[in-house]
Amino acid sequence: MLKFSASSLSPHALRVRAIELVLFASPLVGAYYYGYTEQSSPLFCPFKALTGIPCPGCGMTRSFIAIATGHIDKALDYHIFGIFLFLGFAIATIHLFLELLSKRKVITPFSKLIKHKKIQLLFLFLFLIYHLIRIHNLLKSGELAYGFYHSPLGKLIY
């Protein structure tokens, strides 16, 4: 299932992979840290803070923290795509770690799958449909109007 390329990675490619490893591992480490300490995440959604309307990624940080602490049910409540993104980050972290350790490119069926444009567009489409459903539910409950009215932009307009 895992295959390694015959040629070694260049020093530049190794540096790039080291940076990518830090970028992909950071959210996982951060979620674990904030899940098991009394610290609250310093991250917030600037779009929601300004408009009172959640962006498509709202809830993703809380979802990651819930997954890191073993609360999958809560993670799905915060953002259903959080688990897919968390798994993607975990797989990418392992993949990059193996490449740095072996100094060779790791070839997997997963690598080709995520580069396929139709699959990327499908996930984007599903992500946006999920967001529209969330917005629709907030609109029906009145939370969307309440959030906008009490936001800085809503106060400026009204």
Rank of each mutant, 00 (worst) to 15 (best):
residue 20 E to K: 14
residue 20 E to L: 15
residue 22 V to L: 13
residue 22 V to I: 13
residue 23 L to T: 08
residue 23 L to R: 02
residue 23 L to N: 08
residue 25 A to H: 03
residue 26 S to L: 05
residue 28 L to V: 05
residue 29 V to C: 05
residue 29 V to T: 04
residue 29 V to E: 02
residue 30 G to V: 11
residue 31 A to G: 06
residue 31 A to Y: 00
residue 32 Y to R: 10
residue 34 Y to C: 15
residue 34 Y to N: 14
residue 36 Y to I: 11
residue 36 Y to K: 09
residue 37 T to K: 01
residue 38 E to M: 07
residue 39 Q to W: 09
residue 40 S to G: 15
residue 40 S to Q: 15
residue 41 S to V: 12
residue 41 S to Q: 06
residue 42 P to L: 13
residue 43 L to F: 12
residue 45 C to T: 05
residue 45 C to N: 06
residue 45 C to I: 04
residue 45 C to R: 03
residue 46 P to H: 08
residue 49 A to C: 13
residue 49 A to H: 14
residue 50 L to H: 06
residue 51 T to V: 10
residue 51 T to S: 06
residue 52 G to W: 14
residue 52 G to C: 15
residue 53 I to A: 03
residue 53 I to V: 15
residue 54 P to S: 07
residue 55 C to T: 15
residue 55 C to V: 12
residue 56 P to W: 03
residue 56 P to M: 09
residue 58 C to N: 12
residue 58 C to Y: 09
residue 58 C to E: 12
residue 59 G to A: 03
residue 59 G to H: 01
residue 63 S to L: 14
residue 64 F to G: 07
residue 65 I to Q: 00
residue 65 I to Y: 00
residue 66 A to D: 13
residue 67 I to K: 01
residue 68 A to R: 03
residue 68 A to I: 02
residue 69 T to Y: 07
residue 69 T to P: 08
residue 70 G to V: 14
residue 70 G to M: 04
residue 70 G to W: 11
residue 70 G to E: 09
residue 72 I to C: 02
residue 73 D to W: 14
residue 73 D to N: 15
residue 75 A to H: 10
residue 75 A to Q: 05
residue 75 A to V: 15
residue 76 L to G: 00
residue 78 Y to A: 00
residue 79 H to A: 06
residue 79 H to V: 07
residue 79 H to I: 06
residue 80 I to F: 05
residue 80 I to W: 05
residue 82 G to R: 01
residue 82 G to E: 02
residue 83 I to A: 12
residue 83 I to M: 05
residue 84 F to E: 03
residue 85 L to P: 04
residue 85 L to S: 04
residue 85 L to V: 12
residue 86 F to A: 02
residue 86 F to T: 07
residue 86 F to W: 07
residue 87 L to M: 01
residue 87 L to P: 01
residue 88 G to S: 13
residue 88 G to N: 13
residue 89 F to D: 10
residue 93 T to R: 06
residue 93 T to A: 06
residue 94 I to T: 08
residue 94 I to K: 00
residue 96 L to T: 01
residue 97 F to E: 00
residue 98 L to S: 04
residue 99 E to N: 05
residue 99 E to I: 10
residue 100 L to W: 02
residue 100 L to G: 04
residue 101 L to K: 11
residue 102 S to W: 11
residue 103 K to C: 01
residue 104 R to Q: 08
residue 104 R to L: 01
residue 106 V to G: 13
residue 109 P to G: 14
residue 109 P to W: 14
residue 110 F to G: 03
residue 110 F to L: 11
residue 110 F to P: 08
residue 111 S to M: 07
residue 112 K to M: 09
residue 112 K to C: 03
residue 112 K to S: 11
residue 115 K to V: 03
residue 116 H to F: 11
residue 116 H to P: 01
residue 116 H to E: 10
residue 117 K to G: 10
residue 117 K to D: 13
residue 118 K to Y: 04
residue 119 I to E: 08
residue 120 Q to I: 14
residue 121 L to Y: 14
residue 121 L to V: 13
residue 121 L to T: 14
residue 122 L to Q: 03
residue 122 L to A: 13
residue 123 F to C: 11
residue 126 L to W: 12
residue 126 L to H: 11
residue 127 F to Q: 02
residue 128 L to P: 00
residue 128 L to Y: 14
residue 129 I to M: 09
